[in-house]
Design a protein around this nucleic acid. Structure first.
Lengths: 216, 216
DNA sequence: ATTACTAACTTACGAGTAG
DNA sequence: TCTACTCGTAAGTTAGTAA
């Protein structure tokens, strides 16, 4: 029963829905209210035909379930791994590191873009930590460590990704150090906060396509 | 958390599972018992490490959920439509029709195989009737009606399919007549009951790949 | 160490009904 | 019509415990 409410709001009363899912009007009503409260759907309620539309977050949420199921059934190898996280503020350390020539040049060379001098920090959900570990077991693009005058900079691993299915970027992870699985640091050729109109708290989808070895 | 129990039984205690899914040991126990009762998993219970393994039916069930989700998110066009049904006995009418030259020759010509003179009848679940309607809205291979001496035989629609992901076949549906959505009549080059070792009550997976127009 | 019973607690459902 | 409240009952969860 695909109601097709992805882009256009469709008329759907609680009674109508209850018939489709085989439940009561009251349950349908409650479910819609809860989904709305969770921000997964949007509604336009009126006495003569309410309208329902799924939000982008709702689609993302379904996507996550879909990919988990796919993974159970088909294995991890050729799967896209997706996260939906929340934009947070970092300590602006990213800018410092990225602008180091030692990293910058390697990124241009190995990832194929000139990184914006800063990282976008995204907090992912705790239930996705396992998924992140799976991701970090994949092949990566390695940025070699280097010495810059007095101090040494460690190697880093890069996992190219797509933000909201369209903007190019890469997750960057320090090779050594037990890092916090809760925060993803994303580099990109763009100033993402402006290009994508992001502010703290915004949800963002990060997709890691299967990395082809030939690209490395 | 892919436990990888598709082909090999893996050790999994109720306590272990409860931790993974974030519930109590008791709930894990009950869920496992219910899944086992429904025939979706198999268990090997002992005091020092029980083993769990998903059954083929369990995988099929997950497949169905997966494809429903896919359909919600990606639409119907390029999807494989799957059913898991139960082998039942028909009235052996199939044999009569299939062996009619008027149909037989068309099947050889348009479907590319010599049909076994009989059909496999599969009962699908009521909640899959809508899915079947979707299937029957797709492009089909048409067998023209014909006259054989005194009586006339109506046209039929064929939807090529795969049984258990490997054996070739086709759903055959009379063009006119309000047919019973509960029973699928499958033709195939083989005597399926023998080739696949089927008896009444056995579960069978039927997959309809997207039909390419160029094939017709 | 297991699994799983029982009993209490908590959540979800839906008939009735109001706005 | 519509949505959504109350509230009694059904279903699911879990602590304690047995085997």
């Amino acid at each position: 029963m695909n109601l097709g409410a992805t882009k256009t709001a469709i008329p759907l009363s609680t009674t109508e829905l209850s018939e489709k899912i085989g439940g009561s009007q009251q349950s349908a009503s409650r479910h819609l209210r809860l989904l709305e409260a969770e921000g997964l759907i949007q509604r336009n309620i009126s006495n003569d035909g309410s309208k329902v539309m799924i939000t982008n977050r709702g689609v993302d949420e379904l996507d996550l379930v879909l990919q988990d199921l796919k993974w159970y059934l088909e294995g991890d190898e050729a799967q896209t791994i997706e996260f939906v996280g929340e934009v947070v503020s970092g300590l602006f350390e990213g800018a410092y590191y990225i602008s180091k020539e030692g990293y910058f040049n390697q990124i241009v060379e190995k990832l194929g873009f000139e990184p914006f001098p800063g990282t976008l920090n995204v907090r992912i959900r705790e239930e996705d930590y396992e998924k992140r570990k799976r991701l970090e077991r994949r092949d990566y693009i390695r940025l070699e460590g280097f010495k810059d005058g007095e101090r040494a900079f460690g190697a880093a691993h890069c996992y190219p990704c797509l933000l909201e299915d369209e903007v190019e970027g890469a997750l960057i992870v320090a090779e050594r150090s037990i890092h916090d699985y809760g925060i993803m640091e994303i580099i990109s050729p763009y100033y993402l906060r402006r290009k994508m109109g992001l502010t703290d708290g915004d949800k963002i989808k990060i997709s890691f396509l299967p990395l082809r070895l030939s690209d490395a």
